Simulated assay, not measured.
Amino acid sequence: MHVRDFCGRIWSEKLKRTGNMKQNRSVLFIVLLILVMTGGFWAWKGMNSSKPYKETQFLMDTIIEITAYGPNREEAVKAAFDEYRRLHVLTNNFDANSQVSKINQMAGKEKVVVDPDLVQMIKRSVEMADKLDGAIDITVGPLTDLWGIGRKGDFVPSQAQIQAVLPLVNYRLVQIDEKNNTVYLPKAGMMLDLGAVAKGYATDKAIEILKEKGIKSALVNAGGDVRVIGTRPDGKPWRIGVQDPRNENGVSAKMALTPWDTMETSGDYQRYIMHNGVRYCHILDPHTGWQPKSGVASVTIVNNNSGDGDLFSTALFVLGPEKGLEKLRQFPGNEAIMIMTDGRVIVTPGLKGKVELTGKSGDQ
């Protein structure tokens, strides 16, 4: 019913019942005021919901930024960060009291009861290691501890030191009991390092929480690993840039995250040391104990599954363009942008025409 007709009906009925013009005018004024105020409230609420709530925290050894739109956006973002924090506490191998540290401390001694999320994280990593020819291995802990990138200055271990710990790196030895939520490393000195899986897993969980809180438009950037919900509030897709590995302020490629919602990047520019003019990054080949000699500077995976994206990007960094892209073809729905140390940018066929390159392109 039109507002004018509705108010006219109220006016007529009041006239017939009371015959008091003054009272009728007061009633009409109140009705109109309520309608105006109600309309104004919903207009204000709509405009207010279009404003973002943004928060940044340092967790999981990286800077995480969440931007969300809509009602309850602040509450949703804080709940998502609580989940990041919870999983960080479980997986932080630099914290002697974390559950991952407890597993490492009990290597060769006994099983450790852990959180079900940690069991699932480890299980998925082991399954994917088999499928990716061992290029990703969560038992790489003895090697990452030996290298200590970011913690030991420009220290580079000797081949003898690397050979001494390589026998401890073998994901096939990890024993997982899903029923009792236990994990066991059978050799003393074995160590888990979930750096290639924990952040992606946590981002998936954070996204779930944002959606449960009713968020339909959001962007999560966890140290270059990006995940989105829906589109921007204006209906346009989220456009994301892939960092130039040799220029922290530069972008090598740009694309809209449609129909994908995830971009995961592994690169040699985030954590590394320079020793005698040579770059040594934190990504290690589990088979050799050294940095991969694949000529790759960064790998960005585009898909709809954040948890697997980190595993793929790390594995392709180790395998290199030829073996890595051949392996990726076995997993439909995953696309890649590979930036080589010589500046070439290689894009998989599924991204053809969807990526704007700012550098020189290579074969697809």
Rank of each mutant, 00 (worst) to 15 (best):
V169K: 09
V169L: 07
V169F: 04
N170Y: 02
Y171G: 01
R172N: 11
L173E: 07
V174H: 01
I176T: 05
I176R: 01
D177I: 14
D177R: 10
E178Q: 01
E178V: 03
E178S: 03
K179G: 08
N180D: 12
N180R: 08
T182V: 06
V183H: 04
V183F: 08
Y184M: 12
L185D: 02
L185T: 05
K187T: 09
K187Q: 15
A188L: 15
G189E: 04
G189D: 06
M191V: 05
M191S: 15
L192P: 07
L192H: 14
L192W: 06
L192F: 07
D193C: 00
D193F: 00
L194F: 02
G195F: 06
A196Q: 08
V197A: 06
A198N: 02
A198L: 01
A198R: 10
K199L: 06
K199P: 00
K199R: 13
G200E: 04
G200R: 02
Y201R: 12
Y201H: 03
A202W: 04
A202N: 06
T203Y: 10
D204I: 05
D204T: 08
K205V: 11
K205L: 05
K205H: 10
A206T: 04
A206K: 00
A206M: 11
I209D: 06
I209P: 01
L210E: 05
L210I: 15
L210W: 10
E212S: 13
K213G: 01
K213T: 02
I215G: 03
K216G: 12
S217L: 06
A218L: 14
L219E: 04
L219P: 06
L219K: 15
V220S: 15
N221I: 04
N221F: 04
G223Q: 08
G223N: 14
G223K: 11
G223D: 13
D225W: 15
D225M: 13
R227F: 03
R227N: 05
V228P: 09
V228Y: 10
I229E: 09
G230Q: 13
T231P: 08
T231K: 11
T231N: 09
T231R: 12
R232F: 12
R232S: 07
P233W: 08
P233H: 01
P233R: 01
P233K: 03
P233C: 06
D234H: 11
D234G: 01
